[in-house]
Nucleic acid binder design. Structure first.
Lengths: 205, 205
DNA sequence: CGTTAGTTTGAGGCAGATCAACTTTGGTGG
DNA sequence: CCACCAAAGTTGATCTGCCTCAAACTAACG
């Protein structure tokens, strides 16, 4: 959603293609550039010492990432990994400074985006305390599949997004399949009844 | 930290005093204004249907709040409650629009603040998955007490900030008191060894 | 058509929540 | 200044949702 706004400024920018599983930057690295997704899917993950991964945000076609650290003026707080074959446009910090200076109206878009993300992050934080695992899994299924229907979400990705384990995701999905609210199709799945799922995610506390 | 920047613009603004426990705005309300704290302490909480409260952010002297919803252009996603007697300066949306228009440099400050907050929220989100309750409690004790030493933090507030229960906070604090890392003093407590606490919060996984 | 990444299912364990009963603190007003 | 009492804190006992571990199974790709 950011890309079209910037397109005029970056025609000549450096491009890079990464394949599924490839790391784009690591937590702790110092930002040298911003990234735009020309095509593909990228996940932002926090990986703790014991190896536990938390799936913080997804970025799709036309989304920007790396901007949070750039504007916070800190090192990256998490790691970005390509979830599928992805083509990136790389914008240098210098380039970004120029764009920001000459186009202050983009800052308003950035403020709105960050404020929205902050709200989502805080609601997820709260949800982790007061919702059951299956409620969070259902929410994640809806969010991930409705937003990026073409991607085959693994149980592990869904688990890390919902703050559970992949075994728990498997069990919940099996139950939802039996109840005909989703249908499993190989490693993929489809949503059959969005409304009932939404309802169910709310009544499961 | 925002107040001083804005002081020139708001001399004549409306002021309001609230006492401990008073609600300033509710989740779901539509923002009509922004708030600055002239003096006192305010907490942002998410309260779920079953009554479980999550303590999302603290605001102290010279902090602004209510801005996230204003800039995201959504209803409030959480509730603000005064943690002590607090004097507020209320800025209307119209006033805010004018300030933003005439002082685009303030937008840069806002972007940085939101980006920083988003990073913190996401790290807390990840911490909820990969850290033990006592590790999170120790982090919360350090954060809350070092940032606002004058406030007498209740066990309930600490629990809601760390994502645990007040009984667990009591047990962890009793242990830390025995180990002479903190000292309990009536309902208050003091930090005796910041470094060892920091270390301990890291080794407790 | 072999290999590997991803999925499924069951059994068992535990960190920390919940429930319950009791004590202490510190503010208030008589 | 003291007596009262509501709010806050303490401690122990019990319970449970979900994670962990383990051991097959199966899709899908080269």
């Amino acid at each position: 959603m950011f890309y079209p706004l910037l397109k005029p400024f970056i025609e000549s920018s450096h491009r890079k293609t990464v394949k599924r599983g490839e790391i784009i930057y690591h937590e702790g690295d110092t930002p040298e550039s911003l990234y735009l997704i020309e095509d593909g899917l990228v996940g932002l993950f926090h990986i703790s010492e014991n190896g536990k991964e938390t799936f913080l945000r997804v970025f799709g076609k036309d989304d920007m990432f790396g901007h949070r650290s750039y504007f916070a003026e800190t090192d990256y707080h998490a790691t970005t990994i390509a979830l599928s074959k992805t083509t990136l446009v790389i914008i240098s910090k210098k380039q970004c400074q120029e764009i920001c200076q000459h186009h202050p109206e983009l800052m308003a878009t950035m403020v709105k985006m960050l404020a929205t993300n902050l709200g989502h992050a805080e609601l997820r934080l709260a949800g982790l305390q007061d919702k059951t695992a299956s409620s969070r899994i259902i929410e994640s299924l809806l969010f991930l599949k409705l937003k990026y229907p073409e991607h085959i979400w693994t149980r592990k990705e869904i688990a890390e997004f919902s703050g559970t384990t992949f075994e728990t995701v498997v069990r919940v999905m099996t139950k939802l399949d039996e109840e005909k609210l989703i249908e499993k199709e190989g490693r993929n799945f489809n949503i059959l009844d969005t409304d009932k799922l939404l309802l169910k995610s709310k009544e499961e506390v």
